[in-house]
Design a protein around this nucleic acid. Structure first.
Lengths: 197, 197
DNA sequence: AAATAATATGACCGCCTAGTCATTTTATTG
DNA sequence: CAATAAAATGACTAGGCGGTCATATTATTT
């Protein structure tokens, strides 16, 4: 019982710290943001931070792992649920736009810092490639059923990811209020035009 | 005469330092790379660096300005020279892939650090948007002549930039040796399929 | 070749940051 | 309500950084 209570509080603190780190890293990048910044943003003393995380890098890893996993899961689910390939394309792009809209900070963190720091290649493969591969698989399945032309599926899937990313960046910079669904539909249609039989 | 000699040597030193900075910033990012790193890479003492540049930020600004300007000019010229819209699309994408291939470091620098540091919005507008706008203008012209369907030109141009960027990132990571020209052709064809009458 | 000017050097300074730990505050328990 | 355990604190340390400057080296001039 006490154990559980402890765990709950501990996890709450950890998530509070991660939320603070998300803001700080987004605004100043990993190198630019200090642990003091994070502590201040979380309303805690610096020493407290080190009770819950063993290093600054550790915070960063936990943060990226958490948010990447969430985006991956959400994207996979939406692809799964969409019935037709055209709708899967829209779902893939829309999920990513939506996620960035609601998590501006973490998108900036993932987008700027990504490569160099703290993660094995296989973890990135998992987070970044898995949804893309899922989309590619859907394209291939449609191709086998004659519902899509035989273009290289993997490449098209990556193109969808790239188009989504570009739109996200522009939306964040321009504060563009353009309808999210419409934008996703338009981008998906660019690819669908090439794919449809 | 002496003046000119001086200038030549000075400019040579500056470009040497920029080359060193390009490597360092690409590997460690702006915050992560130190002036000592740059000095070591350039084979100079730290003090010497400060004869040619007044601060670390100043080095960064000169570096990005130089390389962005070069990419912009190259892209604009290739678009200009291509006769048809389809070829202009290919030229736009190919130029960017080629540039990244031959200047891996600076691509990483521009891609990771971009937003926050040291530049006015108008400078970025210039470097990033001008080639895209040039492509958009070409699309619009083709549309007026009935050589392209009336899709939003600006959006298509940005899509071309996004597809190019994605391909570049993957080429850098995967060391992919896939034929550059073919890759550009494929990406351009994705857009051209939607555009062609 | 001496005098003078231009360049290059690296030890040094002040500042900042990641991480520690003795001490204090808060929660739990008997 | 002690007594004890758990959690939180922030002053402190060690190391690294950007930037300076008195000194040394090299080039130019007379």
């Amino acid at each position: 019982m006490a154990r559980t209570k402890q765990k709950i509080v501990q996890e709450f603190r950890r998530s509070e710290i991660l939320a603070a780190a998300r803001t700080v890293f987004a605004r100043k990048s990993f190198e630019g943001g200090s642990v003091d910044d994070i502590a201040a943003a979380a309303g805690l003393a610096k020493g407290t931070i080190y009770i819950y995380f063993k290093s600054k890098k550790d915070i960063y890893k936990a943060l990226v792992a958490h948010d990447m996993e969430a985006l991956k899961a959400s994207t996979m689910r939406h692809i799964e649920e969409a019935p037709t390939l055209r709708e899967k394309l829209v779902a893939f792009i829309e999920t990513r736009l939506e996620n960035a809209e609601h998590n501006r900070e973490i998108f900036r963190v993932m987008d700027t810092q990504s490569g160099s720091l703290a993660f094995t290649r296989s973890q990135y493969r998992d987070w970044l490639q898995e949804p893309v591969h899922a989309l590619a698989a859907a394209i291939e399945k449609a191709q086998r059923n004659g519902k899509a032309r035989p273009l290289p599926a993997e490449k098209i899937a990556w193109a969808a990811a790239d188009l989504a990313r570009g739109a996200i960046v522009r939306r964040l910079v321009d504060q563009s209020a353009e309808n999210l669904r419409e934008e996703a539909e338009f981008l998906a249609s660019l690819l669908w035009t090439s794919l449809r039989p």
